[in-house]
Design a protein around this nucleic acid. Structure first.
Lengths: 339, 339
DNA sequence: CTTTTAAACTAAACCGGTTTAGTTTTTAGA
DNA sequence: TCTAAAAACTAAACCGGTTTAGTTTAAAAG
């Protein structure tokens, strides 16, 4: 059973390629192709299950009906969930998704953006490393449709779908305070990410508003390359004298896991000795001992909104910056802060 | 800054498109383009950062340098991890990956396969719903390069990369036995999946080899649509009289989570009252109370091997069935089976 | 001094669609 | 009866690359 081409249909039915193409693209009526011919073509195409070559179609139309998704790491459950949403939503529009992970490397991200542009994706959804302002700026200048998710560039005006990092950490910190904690630590990664900066700001300002002082010693900012080894030291310092925190806010799910492992290794009881809250969660956090109080991100909304915005951009040709969404997060109280 | 085309380079340098194309594809020497001309072209292309339109290139070459990945659910951490691997490995070959989730629906899977073929992917990696023999058979007949992962069709000879499901469950069951358990239950999903059948077989035959009888009442096969509600009933029946198992093997990570929640809701102590083992795990299973003894799947090897096999197929034109890999699994003993 | 051969390059066809600018045939109007 | 307009269809250009089958020029061979 060899592949069927437009040309073949035309030959078989004794009409031109033009006619076949018009009919199959639903332009039969406006081009005054007789109903009878239309039916013959439609019928034949259906019967032989004709599907056009998308490369040829894309080349001709100047669009690929594919969008690109660039995330730091597709095996991170947070991004995997977003990817799943993006894919579903894109499919509603008849679009496919090509994905790639930047592994937090700006160089890789740059390369990925270019590769995707060469592949003629019609739009991009990017969770950027945030160290790639030049490329983002260029995308904007060339008015290529794109939407940033999870991370944005405060200095560049773009469409984005973010999460209220500040408020999330505020909620978490206040919750710890309300549970009687007064020495609240903060463990975080890559301070170069705006999202992380917002979380840090949320932490500091909330402490201050509560009349507490955010001591430098309470704050551990781990380097992304070395955080696996650095975590041990960080936790040790936080829970030992003279710092001796009685609570820790972790800025990401996997930091929470790692931190909790270290706390246990040190024989600390959670939440009695040290209460913890996690920004973002993993699938089994409700089963952990103790179940971990977490700030939940609305990954479904992030994915859906991002795709919707992107398609509006793609439709309008002119890219308007009018989709700057900051979504609410939710504090899910479990047991890791006491009570 | 408008897009630069091959034609533009040719004009600017006063040579033909042919020459430019040959040089940029490293065919300058074999086509006797002078070193000098080659350098001029290479230099110019680099300076202006020329990248060919991949749709045009793909159409011309009859290949897209893209592979398709079809999994049941990309937001499942197991498939997300495999996707991550596949992407990395594919990139080594200069390939991109388009992914899609079938959501366990054979119709969706069928549609995805066709869509991907229309998009001219050069090969497919499929974790099939296993209810789509017709399409798989057809792929095979048309000798289109593809590799099955995680799930295969025993009745169709194809290349695949699987995991030794039988042995995994055998290991788990024996471990429970060695910890003194004699009433071992089995909770599973979709018995139509070959992988699940293998796991069930592993369970039954191991029990028999240990001199135990695999009672029907010990085995719960949940329906995929209703498993969320059915789990409650299943666990209740397993741990109540007259069945009263003292151990459960769960055939998938999320079943383990759900089952554990139900066990807790019933006030059962794990592992004292009921020991559990999970086939496959989630990120935080080591932090759960108790840490869950799990059968680990080598997702890295699955992804890498699948890509390697696929590329061999793609290179050889002739698709040879000589890549039937069954990878070893590992039992990671934690605390959920006692000590 | 012609004929071969090699070196360096190119025109045009091709991939498989879409679309513009027609052409042919039929019908309606004057 | 002749012309204009409408209906139904199509040839050929185009998208942006790759590649086949040459062409032109210069040097080597006879």
């Amino acid at each position: 059973m060899k592949k069927l081409y437009l040309k073949d249909i035309a030959h078989q039915l004794n009409v031109s390629k033009t006619t076949v193409s018009l009919v199959l693209n639903n332009k039969g009526d406006e081009n005054k192709i007789s109903k009878e011919t239309q039916n013959r073509i439609l019928e034949f195409a259906r019967k032989h299950n004709y599907k056009p070559n998308q490369l040829a179609r894309g080349l001709s139309l100047g669009k690929s009906e594919t969008i690109g998704l660039i995330v730091p790491d597709i095996s991170d459950i947070f991004y995997a969930r977003i990817a799943s949403c993006v894919e579903k939503k894109a499919k509603e529009f008849g679009y496919n998704v090509v994905f790639s992970s930047s592994n937090e490397s700006p160089e890789t991200e740059q390369e990925l953006i270019r590769t995707m542009l060469n592949r003629q994706v019609d739009g991009l959804i990017i969770a950027s490393t945030q160290q790639n302002a030049a490329d983002i700026e260029q995308l904007k200048q060339s008015s290529f449709p794109f939407v940033l998710i999870d991370r944005h560039y405060p200095e560049i005006e773009t469409n984005y779908v973010l999460v209220d990092n500040y408020k999330g950490v505020k909620l978490a910190t206040e919750h710890l305070y309300n549970n009687g904690r007064r020495c609240i630590g903060f463990v975080s990664l890559h301070p170069q990410l705006e999202a992380i900066r917002q979380r840090l700001r949320g932490y500091k300002e909330t402490l201050e508003s509560l009349g507490l002082k955010p001591e430098k010693a309470f704050i551990k900012e781990l380097d992304k390359e070395t955080h696996k080894t650095a975590m041990k030291k960080a936790i040790f310092e936080l829970v030992s004298k003279p710092v001796s925190v009685d609570a820790i806010v972790f800025s990401t799910h996997y930091l929470t896991s790692m931190g909790l492992r270290e706390l246990r290794a040190l024989g600390k009881n959670v939440p009695k000795d040290v209460a913890i809250v996690s920004f973002d969660e993993m699938s089994a956090f409700d089963l952990v001992d103790p179940p971990i109080t977490s700030i939940l991100q609305p990954f479904n909304d992030i994915g859906n909104l991002a795709v919707e915005c992107l398609f509006k951009e793609m439709k309008n040709k002119m890219v308007k910056i009018d989709h700057q969404h900051i979504l609410e997060v939710e504090l899910l109280i479990r047991k890791s802060c006491g009570s």
